[in-house]
Design a protein around this nucleic acid. Structure first.
Length: 638
DNA sequence: GCAAGGTC
């Protein structure tokens, strides 16, 4: 029997071939320069295998020519306009390859990633192969890691494609296109009609991911604007001790007030006067305990992007692009992963070995090999497809940002394989005039073993010595004052904050979060502002106008707030059928519609929102154009 | 000139 195996990407096709053939396969070119066909016998299944791949989705969806031109129709028609799925020109060679290979095979085995999109790509592959060979048997190999045992098992016990998941992705695709195109054209054309091309250049896009993303930025901005500082008062108590042998200058030990700070000045004043009456402080308790600073978790895509923004000062999109390049050069593992736990069989030692050559961290790698190795911590996430991001080869010649990203990932990997840092923390509890104070944490810390910190300078943990105190000892504070302060304004969002929010709310995927942030910047909805060394995201007048505008309309289901997107409901229905657990879904599901009814109904809901939005949109830009553009632009001085 | 999702 001849079996045609098709993976989602060329690298997986090669890995599968290596494992199943034990390294004995022949390679044939395909009409596509990135894709190779691998041939070998697989006696375990008494078959001849050909393994090839696609490169992500084969099909692209768009409207017909009759609706593709912006002025060809009212944007509203896009909710019902026919959508065609076709193989774009640059993928035609991939399609040709599949058809040729399918003609000579009795079985098609789908090896796409085991996620929803993978199921959909699998269905695309099956359609193409069946068009060339209508009798071909279609099977699905299920695997969660590129490990020999799993790959063999998948090859020998193939299952079926999950068409429900594949259809759910079709629903998502169609909804994204309809909603995105309709709202984008409506917004853009309305602004152009009111302000002309010169004022309103570019595209004012709407998308079910980019708008909630913008919504986060605007919500934080509004919080910052609405903030009113509040006064508070507290008692400041400290002891200044003379310098010791090693440290120059006086050392001040601050005892923080157990009450923190209070907002009633009279109350603090009364307590403070009590302290002043009897200012001698008595050491109530001295506690010394071992403490740890935990080494970092194995690296996921989202964490890489956050760290890249916070530590390396690179935009999330840029970090991901660089990681992708390094992956293609063979320096890194696959950079899009949600997994923060290593497989128990993972071969750490040979990867650590490869880093011994490095000038900066080679010695540390060596120490891990000489008994310093400890298994990495295990996080809670596993996408069952890819391991955490780690270096796969030593790269000595990188420069600039590539070097920075590679260095971070490598140091992170070595840190994961090391030990937690150990320290000893002293807490001193003090009573003064009936009030309790204590000095603790960073103040009384002695770092005993730096361990992973030696290779991971991104974490800071430094000793801060505290004078020796004895229980029962009485001291006269050097400073005992009532001080005042103000609550501080929340800060604007950073890119790292935004990545966290999107991740938590399920906006986009690990591979697309960075793109959505880039989109709202490219659209001039958001401006990056540097303050010191931190980059903050500030919404533009346009961004605020759009979000506040939609919020003011008061949709039942907001177009701008993070939420379970409507089509997520449909996907759930496609995949699981009606369910009753989550409240937000109950309304929809109790009606027990069929899947197609659901799709039609949700399009109807979006149509209603569209009509309302268009009406309000026209009204807003007519009556208060400054909500959309800055006053100087509206007045023509721009 | 529109979306979001794959990947090269």
């Amino acid at each position: 029997m001849r079996v045609l195996c098709v993976a989602e990407k060329p690298s997986i096709a090669r890995s599968i071939s290596e494992i199943l053939s034990g390294g004995r396969f022949t390679t044939r070119p395909s009409p596509n320069k990135y894709i190779k066909n691998f041939d070998f016998d697989y006696p375990q299944a008494r078959a001849h295998f050909t393994v090839t791949s696609v490169s992500g989705h084969l099909l692209a969806h768009d409207f017909h020519d009759t609706h593709r031109k912006w002025n060809s129709c009212d944007p509203f028609e896009l909710f019902d306009a026919p959508i065609q799925a076709k193989v774009p020109d640059d993928k035609k060679s991939i399609e040709r390859n599949l058809m040729t290979e399918a003609r000579g095979a009795q079985m098609l085995m789908i090896w796409t990633d085991c996620d929803r999109e993978g199921e959909n790509i699998g269905a695309e592959i099956a359609r193409v192969c069946r068009s060339a060979n209508r009798n071909i048997t279609v099977k699905r190999a299920r695997f969660s890691a590129i490990i020999a045992q799993q790959i063999h098992n998948a090859a020998q016990h193939p299952a079926e494609l999950d068409m429900a998941q594949a259809e759910a992705v079709d629903a998502r695709t169609v909804l994204d296109l309809r909603i995105g195109a309709a709202f984008t054209r409506m917004q853009t054309l309305a602004l152009q009609a009111r302000f002309g091309d010169a004022l309103s250049e570019g595209v004012q896009s709407y998308g079910p991911c980019q708008f909630p993303t913008l919504g986060f930025v605007v919500a934080r901005y509004n919080q910052v604007q609405a903030f009113v500082p509040e006064m508070f008062w507290y008692i400041y108590l400290s002891l200044v001790s003379p310098p010791t042998g090693t440290s120059g200058g006086n050392r001040e030990t601050v005892f923080t007030w157990k009450r923190g700070h209070l907002f009633e000045v009279e109350v603090v004043l009364a307590l403070y006067e009590g302290v002043l009456e009897n200012p001698m402080a008595r050491i109530r308790k001295v506690t010394k305990k071992e403490t740890k600073k935990w080494k970092p978790l194995p690296l996921t895509t989202v964490e890489l992007q956050k760290a890249g923004s916070r530590l390396l000062k690179l935009a999330p999109k840029k970090v991901l692009d660089i990681a992708e390049r390094l992956y293609q050069q063979g320096f890194l593992s696959y950079p899009r992963t949600e997994t923060d736990q290593y497989d128990p069989q993972f071969d750490f030692m040979s990867l650590i070995q490869k880093q011994i050559a490095d000038n900066a961290w080679g010695n540390f790698a060596n120490s891990l090999q000489q008994g310093g190795f400890n298994p990495p911590r295990r996080g809670k996430n596993n996408d069952k497809a890819h391991p955490p991001i780690h270096p796969t080869a030593h790269a000595g010649n990188l420069v600039g940002d590539e070097r920075k990203v590679y260095e971070f990932i490598t140091r992170r990997f070595l840190a994961c394989c090391s030990k937690d840092a150990l320290g000893s923390e002293t807490t001193v509890d003090v009573v003064c005039g009936g009030e309790e104070f204590s000095a603790t944490g960073a103040i009384g810390l002695i770092v005993l073993e730096r361990n992973y910190l030696e290779v991971y300078p991104y974490d800071k943990w430094n000793s801060k010595e505290i004078p020796d105190f004895v229980e029962g000892q009485e001291i006269m504070p050097s400073i005992c004052e009532m001080r005042e302060g103000e609550t501080t304004r929340p800060s604007l969002l950073t890119e790292a904050d935004l990545v966290t929010l999107m991740d938590k709310n399920g906006i986009g995927t690990d591979a697309t979060i960075a793109q959505h942030i880039q989109t709202i910047i490219d659209r001039d909805y958001v401006i990056e502002r540097m303050e010191g060394s931190t980059k903050y995201l500030v919404p533009s007048t346009l961004g605020i106008g759009l979000i506040d505008g939609y919020n003011d309309i008061g949709f039942e289901r907001s177009l701008s707030k993070p939420q379970l997107r409507l089509y997520e409901l449909i996907i759930c229905l496609f995949v699981h059928g009606p369910f009753k657990t989550e409240r937000s879904m109950v309304q929809v599901c109790e009606r027990t519609k069929t899947k197609n009814d659901m799709l039609v109904e949700s399009i109807e809901q979006y149509k209603d929102m569209f009509i309302k939005a268009k009406r309000e949109f026209d009204k807003v830009i007519e009556v208060r154009p400054t909500l959309v553009f800055p006053p100087d632009r509206v007045d023509g001085q721009y």
